[in-house]
Design a protein around this nucleic acid. Structure first.
Length: 389
RNA sequence: GGGCAGGUGGUAGAGCGGUCAAUUACACCUGACUGUAAAUCAGGCGCCUUUCGGCUACAUAGGUUCGAAUCCUAUCCUGCCCA
């Protein structure tokens, strides 16, 4: 597949206007590709990284990436991908978030081919006259029929006026930086179209739009930090590997296409493997390698196989010291080590999920001999060593 | 400004005077099984207690009652309708 074709199809939901963008790409013109960054959550998970990888592909073709930091829009709050209103952010919060964000984003992107702008720079200056002019380009019904707005209204939830301003602001960003292309998740479609509508009013060609497929989280629901089903690009190799292994089988191909850079034809080959486990292991290794390098990915793979396929103990088990005066009953010790309540520790015991020195412990008693090191296993994933300090 | 409806556990959403620590679904945890930390099946899922039981919790603060998530009052928040 040639690079341009891959650029316009891989993980892509929709391209507006495809023919136009295709000819632009072939024209050798250096394009300005816009990505809005929402500074509400600084951690980049592999779902959000999809857009960044797409930008990287643009960079590899010689185009310019423009980051728009929504420091101003962030203050207002977007609704595109939320079912409820977003909270307003303080300026301090935004700044700290951004520092973290960039550190992660430049693992993927080439900083030399990336420029960054803060949209407060131009949005602050807009007066009512200007805003009114832009607002006039839209009808209320357009907002009303937006899926997530409609859903909320139907459910009797509040939609504030402030939220209606958001697409206008984002659209004006495109004007300010003269964007040729804007991309992001399908949930952003409406906002992108706003740019396409507003730009011509300022004598610019309306931007082309690429919307990307959304990626489900490890549990199959939408990937979202508040669900705890995300894989962050800063996750430790073993953790990342394990999280990938826990995705449901149906998601394997999508993860390959969206989250890795494995060649499409190669993906098709991998998908022919009869055992989904093997597909998933390759996926986990490729994905981990993308962020941690092949060597660490191979290590994570080994650790996973020995721990979960063969049931061996992991290599590095954290040692915790019990304070003196500590009464080492099984339940209290477990709750101390694992960080769960005593009731929960007891439940674990009842369910046969608790092992001390590899033996299942079902009744609460004092652990003998805690001057020596003991091993505690809570379920299949939590391991601790402990001894008296 | 007026009228009406509502605020329940991580989420959605039942319950509308005792049998409610609260149905159910999802998420989560544990076990079994398996080719997988998938799927499926079973159990669990506030805190404390060996058991009995106790404590805290259904927006907040009071009140009625032998007894309140459930009734009343006030407050805060949200939605809808009218102006």
């Amino acid at each position: 597949m040639n690079p341009i074709e891959e650029l316009l199809t891989r993980g892509v939901e929709e391209v507006i206007d495809k023919a136009h963008l295709e000819s632009l790409l072939k024209s050798k013109k250096k394009l300005r590709i816009k990505l809005g960054i929402d500074p509400t959550s600084p951690n980049i998970h592999i779902g959000r990284a999809v857009a960044l990888w797409k930008l990287r592909a643009f960079q590899e073709l010689g185009h310019q990436v423009i980051f728009i930091v929504g420091d101003f829009t962030g203050l207002i709050g977007d609704t595109a991908d939320k079912d409820s209103e977003r909270p307003m952010l303080s300026e301090v919060e935004i700044k700290t978030n951004l520092r973290t964000y960039f550190k992660q984003a430049f693992k993927i992107l080439d900083p030399k081919k990336t420029e960054t702008h803060y949209n407060s720079k131009w949005l602050k200056k807009l007066g009512f006259l200007e805003i009114g002019k832009m607002a006039n380009l839209f009808g209320l019904h357009e907002f009303e029929s937006r899926e997530n707005i409609a859903k909320r209204m139907k459910a009797g939830k509040r939609v504030s006026l402030r939220e209606l301003l958001y697409p206008i602001m984002q659209g004006y960003d495109s004007v300010a930086i003269k964007a040729d292309v804007e991309l992001g998740g399908t949930d952003q479609r409406f906002n992108f179209l706003a740019g396409r509508t507003i730009q011509p009013a300022y004598g610019q060609q309306g931007q082309d739009i690429i919307t990307l497929q959304l990626m489900e989280g490890t549990d199959g629901r939408k990937m979202s930090s508040s669900w705890g089903n995300v894989i962050n690009i800063t996750d430790e190799p073993n953790d990342m590997f394990g999280k990938v292994m826990s995705i449901t089988d149906e998601l394997i191909k999508k993860y390959f296409v969206l989250a890795t850079r494995v060649d499409i034809t190669e993906i098709d080959e991998i998908m022919k493997l009869p055992n989904p486990r093997d597909q998933k292991i390759i996926l986990a290794e490729k994905l981990t390698g993308l962020y941690h390098g092949d060597k660490k990915a191979a290590g994570a793979k080994e650790a996973f196989i020995s721990q979960f396929s063969k049931g061996e103990l992991p290599e590095d088990i954290e040692i915790k010291f019990l304070p003196s005066g500590f009464i080492p009953t099984v339940s209290v010790t477990t709750s101390f080590l694992v960080g769960i309540s005593k009731s929960e520790a007891k439940r674990l015991m009842d369910q046969g999920g608790l092992k001390i020195d590899s033996k299942v412990v079902k009744e609460d008693k004092i652990i003998e001999d805690i001057e020596k090191e003991h091993l505690l296993q809570a379920g299949k994933r939590r391991f601790f060593k402990f001894k008296r300090k």
